[in-house]
Design a protein around this nucleic acid. Structure first.
Length: 328
DNA sequence: AAATTACACAACCGCCATGGA
DNA sequence: ATCCATGGCGGTTGTGTAATT
């Protein structure tokens, strides 16, 4: 015997709402509010609908200030970043996008955004199969953890991913989700200061502060260096905000990386042609030009400690000196 | 022009958390 | 402490429409 149904399914209308039903529901709620009881509402409002159906109709369609229509690039970015950080928690993601509903975002992700990202990713070459690159890697093929503070057998960067967490009040410890962004969207982040960050955002945390110190290690079964947060299980690893990468992982930090086949490859001293080749395939944003400019003017392979975060065909890039280099 | 397929998005289902009795 | 009603959520399905064959 299963759970008792919330309403009498036989006497309840289902399927698309008519304009008349919408009007009845809207009129009733405008006049009386929801009364804190959706189950009782339909009868009071003269609707032959399940209370849950009324609630959904109101929340997703009828309530004021619902935004319909195309998602902006900024909205895309927020969705991707949050998805990378917290997964399919649509209601939380919706909380960051005024006027959007969780259902809307979920549909948008499932039907368009995911594909859009996938197409972008598929355009990338796989750096492992490139003929002219040379990845420097440790000679030791055992699992090996390299705390971020110590030097690894080669100069992999274990710097912090340039993820920023903005907080619109002064309390970073409250549990509400704030806007996550990346250096690429914050722009012009340096050790001296941050420009172009919205002034209404008070506090800024680096991923180090948010997630803890990064570690990297080498998988004994692959020549790859993994990055992640020590002891992390739910959180994303070093690539917490790299949508291109995280699309295909569920988060998980360093402990779960092997299971997810998530690959973060440190490429400290790679041929910078590789960087350019990969970036050429990310031809989506003006950030690309910024990155390429930095690469070409700064002999990156020497002056910057670049990381590629690679998952099969996908990659992102960042620098160690906290200038804008990441692309996603 | 009709049939079929693809797509977008609205709606439903079932599970889980919560709070009151 | 337990039960139960309800709300909230995320996954999935259904439906209408546009595009294609």
């Amino acid at each position: 015997m299963g759970r008792a149904p919330c309403c009498d399914k036989a006497n309840v209308k289902r399927g698309p709402w008519s304009p008349e039903e919408d009007q009845k529901l809207k009129d009733y709620i405008d006049k009386h509010g929801t009364g804190g009881n959706w189950i009782a509402l339909p009868q009071k409002a003269g609707l032959r609908r399940c209370g849950k159906s009324c609630r959904l109709r109101w929340l997703n369609y009828l309530r004021p200030n619902i935004k319909h229509g195309q998602f902006s690039d900024d909205e895309d970015r927020i969705i991707c970043t949050l998805f990378a950080n917290i997964g399919s928690r649509w209601s939380i993601i919706a909380g960051q996008l005024p006027g959007r509903t969780d259902n809307d975002i979920k549909n948008y992700w499932n039907t368009k955004l995911k594909k859009k990202l996938l197409m972008t990713s598929l355009l990338l070459p796989n750096p492992f199969h490139s003929s002219h690159h040379k990845f420097i890697r440790p000679s030791n093929n055992n699992y090996q953890h390299y705390p971020s503070s110590s030097s690894s057998p080669c100069s992999y960067s274990s710097t912090l991913a340039p993820t920023l967490r903005f907080c619109s009040n002064n309390n970073m410890n409250d549990n509400t989700y704030h806007n996550y962004t990346t250096l690429a969207s914050a722009r012009s982040f340096t050790n001296e200061g941050i420009s172009n960050v919205p002034t209404n955002l008070v506090n800024i945390e680096t991923q180090d502060q948010v997630l803890g110190s990064m570690q990297n290690y080498q998988d004994k079964e692959s020549p790859l260096i993994m990055f992640g947060v020590a002891g992390g299980d739910e959180q994303a690893g070093s690539c917490g905000s790299y949508e291109q990468l995280m699309m295909f992982s569920n988060g998980g930090g360093i402990n779960n990386i092997p299971q997810q086949k998530q690959i973060d490859l440190g490429v400290s001293h790679c041929d910078h042609n590789i960087v350019s080749n990969v970036l050429d395939h990310y031809n989506m944003s003006s950030d690309l030009e910024e990155i390429k400019q930095l690469i070409s003017t700064n002999n990156l392979s020497c002056n910057y400690n670049l990381n590629f975060f690679v998952d099969e065909n996908k990659a992102a890039v960042r620098s160690e000196d906290e200038k804008v280099l990441m692309y996603y």
